[in-house]
Computed example of a mutant assay.
Amino acid sequence: MSKEETVESGKPFLVGNKKDLIETKRTSITVGERVLLIIHHEGVFYALDQHCYHAGGSLLNGDIEELDNRLCIVCPKHKYKISLKNGEGIYNATNPKEKDKPPCWKSKGIKQRVHKVTEVDGKVFLTLSETPGWIESDYYQSEKGRADLKLEMDLETNKSAKS
Rank of each mutant, 00 (worst) to 15 (best):
S2W: 06
K3H: 07
S9H: 04
G10V: 10
I22H: 03
T24N: 08
K25Q: 12
T27F: 07
V31C: 12
G32W: 02
R34C: 03
V35Q: 10
L36A: 09
L37F: 02
H40Q: 10
F45R: 13
F45D: 11
F45I: 00
D49C: 13
D49F: 05
G57A: 00
G57N: 01
L59V: 09
L59R: 02
L60N: 06
G62L: 02
D63K: 15
I64M: 02
L67D: 03
L67N: 10
N69H: 08
C72H: 01
I73Q: 07
K77Y: 13
I82N: 14
S83R: 06
N86M: 07
G89W: 04
Y91M: 13
N92H: 13
A93Y: 14
T94M: 14
P96S: 04
P102C: 13
C104R: 09
K106M: 13
I110P: 08
V114Y: 00
H115V: 02
V117L: 15
E119M: 08
V120G: 01
G122A: 13
F125R: 10
T127S: 13
L128V: 11
S129E: 04
T131G: 00
T131R: 15
I135P: 02
E136D: 15
Q141P: 09
K150L: 12
D154M: 14
E156D: 12
K159I: 00
A161Q: 12
K162P: 00
S163F: 12
